[in-house]
Amino acid sequence: MEAGALTLHDHHGPPPANRSSRVDPQTLGMLLFIISEVMVFGAFFTAYFFIRVVAGDQWPAEGTELPKLIAGVNTAILLSSSLTMHWTVMAAKAGNRFGMKAGILATTLLGATFLFVQINEYVHIGFAPSDTAQGSIFYGLTGLHGAHVFIGLMLLTFVTIRVFRGHFSPEHHHGIEIPGIYWHFVDIMWVIVYSTVYLL
């Protein structure tokens, strides 16, 4: 409102837009973006469905096996990063700077560890995407997810920088909250990928 009053006196900016909805624009934008991200995964799962179910090929391709256990540990790592992320946001709302710093650092590091383990897994897994269609879709799905983890990590890095530069306050913490939402999405997505590709 004050902002509104301001621009009314000097007509150098646009009039403040009316807020016709309770949801906050940035958050809504991120949610919609996540919907389309989910659809990208949906398409890859379609491919997975055709190769594994419709074609009925054995899974994983014979002579290969998937490191359920390591990946399981990795899953735990990623999930815990979701908790630290949540903690960071709480800290931001409470204006607890130490909590913010520790939380965001922990989250970033956990994410990085996950990515590292994932790549390491690729190196030792013993089959290439070019071997079989099963291999292709395995690398396809996990790789797609890996790419999302990477994007998420970039966002987190930005947040980290800004946290250490003293940004954010109990009133203004969108910059943490919204990358946070994305990060949670990346984690949930992994649970789905892990259970379909590795466990089932």
Partner: peptide
């Protein structure tokens, strides 16, 4: 990759 390589289990209708 072999998404559409039928000789390696791909599926072109996908």
């Amino acid at each position: 990759f072999n998404f559409f390589d039928v000789t390696r289990g791909g599926d072109v209708l996908m």
